[in-house]
């Protein structure tokens, strides 16, 4: 990966009528690095994530992915990216293989073999309906789909929320394996701070619609002598928003 930033957020704001949820946020994510976007509930993380994927247009400012405005060139840029949502976004009544077939026609870089192999390993049956899968299986299914197009950029929105230990382990194994194999650029949000502490290179903490903290994880921890969880708690003290 080049050191040129894969994702660049320039003064992005998101406003819903009177609500300013994200206020002039700027940050960069270098190629091959893992960026953790943290914040209390309702802090605006999901809105930012949607802006990163071209789903939503920031009220002001812009988001550049691979050097181009992602709102304007969404389709082209999404070919090189993948998204793991918090809850599986595939239509529930469809079968696993229908969803896989849909993805196959979407991506030129689709790796059918790897996807099959993963699904096998995760115990996800191809003929099962998506709604019939357990929560853990659904999360792994979503990950398998996301990794299927060999993305250069992977965006994850609280991927391990509500997963049991085994599912979470499976998730991280494949996730880290992918990082090792391909050096994917990753942006993720999470509440499982301990879980991602060893994985994130940089962290951004959204607090009061601003990016209250943005820096190298190791550096921050060394300077403050605190764990990531402690840093987070301190930065977001008393900021609980109504979600």
């Amino acid at each position: 990966m080049t050191s040129q930033s894969v994702v660049r957020v320039e003064n992005a704001s998101v406003r819903y009528n009177k609500d300013l949820v994200v206020d002039s946020v700027s940050f960069e994510v270098a190629g091959g690095s893992v960026f953790a976007l943290l914040g209390r509930n309702g802090a605006g993380k999901s809105s930012l994530i949607r802006c990163l994927l071209g789903l939503q247009r920031p009220t002001t400012g812009r988001v550049l992915v691979f050097g181009e405005d992602v709102w304007k060139h969404r389709a082209r840029l999404m070919a090189r990216s993948a998204y793991v949502p918090e809850a599986c976004d595939a239509p529930g009544q469809l079968r696993v293989r229908d969803i896989v077939a849909f993805h196959r026609s979407m991506y030129a870089t689709w790796n059918e073999g790897a996807v099959r192999e993963r699904l096998n390993r995760f115990g996800v049956s191809e003929s099962a309906a998506v709604s019939a899968l357990s929560k853990g299986q659904r999360a792994l299914f979503t990950l398998a789909l996301a990794l299927g197009n060999r993305p250069e950029l992977l965006v994850l929105d609280d991927p391990t929320l509500g997963l049991d230990v085994v599912a979470r382990n499976d998730f991280f194994s494949d996730f880290i394996g992918e990082l090792a194999d391909r050096g994917t650029t990753v942006i993720l949000t999470t509440h499982d701070l301990a879980g991602v502490e060893g994985i994130a290179d940089r962290v951004g903490i959204l607090q009061g619609a601003h990016l209250a903290l943005d820096g190298d994880v190791e550096q921050l921890k060394m300077e403050r002598g605190q764990s990531l969880e402690q840093i987070f708690t301190e930065v977001t003290k008393g900021s609980g928003r109504k979600s």
Binding site: R50, L53, G54, L55, R74, A75, R76, M78, A79, S81, A82, Y83, P85, A87, D89, A90, P91, H103, M106, Y107
Partner: peptide
């Protein structure tokens, strides 16, 4: 319903022109 059920990203976070 795709919207209200949170499936908007299924179609839009894809290389699929609107």
């Amino acid at each position: 319903t795709d919207f209200t059920d949170g499936r908007a990203s299924f179609f839009f976070a894809r290389p699929l022109q609107t």
